[in-house]
Design a protein around this nucleic acid. Structure first.
Length: 475
RNA sequence: GGCGCGUUCGUCUAGUGGCCUAGGACGACAGGUUCUCAACCUGUAAAUCGCGGGUUCAAAUCCCGCACGCGUCACCA
């Protein structure tokens, strides 16, 4: 059975790059009727942030990428939080020492730092000098008994070639002399990432290890560990890393990496996933718009392209607009209502939102675009984007004409206004623009006649008369 | 700097030796439609397939070298 996992560090807000990873883990597991596991990697006590776990799970739920096993969903291979598995790592680290594949190291942080500085000065690669490898077992035993602080390091064989197979790139060779004697168990009793992933992935029966490309160069360490434990290594996939426009790792400085930002700006989770799916993967028929279900059916990890794509917000916005355009009206209404309530603490009147949806459906790209476009439906304009002071006469005639309309429908209105414009020999564009601004205050609005129909006769006349008053004052 | 990975329009990509004088999408631009904005329609510009060598009747596609970009070099993940 296929089992994939997302290894998430609770160190801050949910990152869009994490979702990108999770999408592939999730889709691949689902495609093969497998299980998708979320494991909390909180082995760095200093970086762990309280509350981050909750945020991660709520982000997963928002995207519809909920896991099958985790700290909140019981599974057969728990616990799923690494800080709850400390004895396990200790046991395996010691097993490695017993096998002669790892060793105790008593070097102080100061010594390591000096060593590093020294090597850097000599323009050499900063690596541990394997000092404690030379310690004999008697001495080690003695030092351990006195309670001296220690770490356990991986004993990397000298002068061999380590071959690792990455399913997207083929076989990659590393010279073991370039691989550091990695610390596996820290002096605080916590494992480092390397020990923890290998032990956990094995114990949790992970079949496909999907992780970011930033891990690629550490894969020989992983390979060595699997060999030393004599475990079967899962299939390895190093997925591309999303980039900034300048091709560096996608970061806060140059883009929006926080999932919350997308929520707050009214992006739809389906649209984001669809967009993300197209980064490094393409639909066999060249389709750009597809559902998660369709993606799951067609996706295969091996089709991923190992090139770091640049995150292009305009395309995401376009895609979001496409999703809104295709959504049922009642659903958009609910989404808008919900969105403003939740993220802007505004309770918009449901009936009015419902009426305006048909007018704005193809005009907004994000839920957050709704109010700037439709605010005038809820309150009369305070400011006017065009100076109407010379139009007093025009508006008087408009009022006169509007008052005669008995059937207040967009069509009637349009007809009446059209004929008035031609009677007065005013250009359509000018005429309607003046009226538009009088009613809404804005140059850009949904279709005028329809908008006026929704506002109603009384309100429209009120607003135009208000405009006349204001233009009169200006004179 | 060592090591590793990568390189097709501005961006996401199609492409696995002939169908490629390189296709699509976003974006840009121009025009049409139109009461504004969108939407929609039509069209234009945009990649000498990073560069240089091979192999082959034939290369974006295979091989080699170089350049550039990115990643990584912690008791962080």
């Amino acid at each position: 059975m296929v089992r994939t996992r997302a290894a998430i560090s609770p160190t801050g807000f949910p990152h869009i790059g994490t979702i990108y990873q999770v999408l592939f883990d999730y889709a691949f597991a689902k495609k093969h009727q497998g299980r998708f596991i979320v494991r909390i990697e909180d082995t760095d006590q200093e970086r762990t942030v309280a509350g981050a776990e909750t945020k991660i799970f709520s982000a997963l739920d928002w995207f519809g990428l909920s896991e099958d096993e985790s700290i909140r969903k019981k599974g057969p291979y728990g616990p799923y939080r690494q800080s709850d598995r400390l004895p396990i790592y200790k046991k395996y680290a010691e097993e490695l020492v017993g096998k002669g594949k790892a060793y105790y190291c008593f070097c102080t942080k100061q010594r390591l730092e000096e060593l590093r500085n020294q090597l850097q000065k000599q323009k050499k690669v900063p690596m541990y000098d394997k000092y404690c490898r030379k310690l004999n077992s008697e001495e080690v035993k003695k030092r351990l008994q006195t309670g001296e602080k220690f770490v356990i390091r991986l004993k990397v064989p000298e002068n061999i070639t380590i071959k690792v197979r990455d399913e997207l790139r083929g076989e990659i060779s590393f010279d073991s002399d370039n691989v550091d004697d990695q610390v596996l168990l820290k002096s605080d009793g916590y494992p480092t990432y390397f020990l923890a992933v290998v032990v956990d992935d094995h114990l949790m029966k992970i079949t496909h290890m999907v992780r970011g490309e930033e891990w690629l160069t550490s894969s020989p360490k992983i390979k060595l560990l699997y060999d030393h434990f004599q475990w079967d290594i899962p299939r390895l996939y190093h997925t591309p890393i999303i980039r900034n426009p300048d091709k560096s790792k996608f970061s806060k400085r140059q883009g929006h990496t926080n999932v919350d930002w997308y929520k707050k700006n009214g992006f739809l989770p389906e649209a984001i996933l669809n967009y993300l799916a197209l980064l490094g993967w393409s639909h066999p028929e060249g389709k750009e718009l597809f559902t998660l279900t369709e993606f799951i059916a067609l996706f295969d990890l091996k089709d991923l392209k190992p090139i770091g794509p640049i995150f292009d917000l305009p395309k995401l916005e376009w895609m979001n607009g496409q999703y809104i355009m295709k959504m049922q009206r009642s659903k958009i209404k609910d989404q808008i209502l919900n969105y403003y309530k939740k993220y802007q603490d505004l309770r918009l009147p449901e009936d009015m939102v419902e009426k305006t949806v048909p007018l704005i459906q193809e005009r907004i790209k994000k839920l957050a675009d709704y109010l700037p476009l439709c605010e005038f439906f809820f309150q009369p304009p305070e400011k006017y984007e065009i100076n109407l002071s010379s139009q007093k006469e025009l508006f008087s005639k408009i009022v006169e004409k509007l008052q005669q309309i008995s059937d207040w429908q967009a069509e009637e209105l349009g007809g009446a206004m059209q004929s008035l414009a031609s009677d007065l020999k005013v250009k359509n564009s000018e005429f309607f623009m003046a009226l538009r601004v009088a009613v809404s205050g804005k140059k850009i609005t949904p279709p005028l006649n329809e908008s006026m129909e929704i506002l109603g006769k009384t309100e429209c006349l009120r607003r135009i008369e208000l405009t006349i008053d204001k233009t009169a004052n200006n004179c």
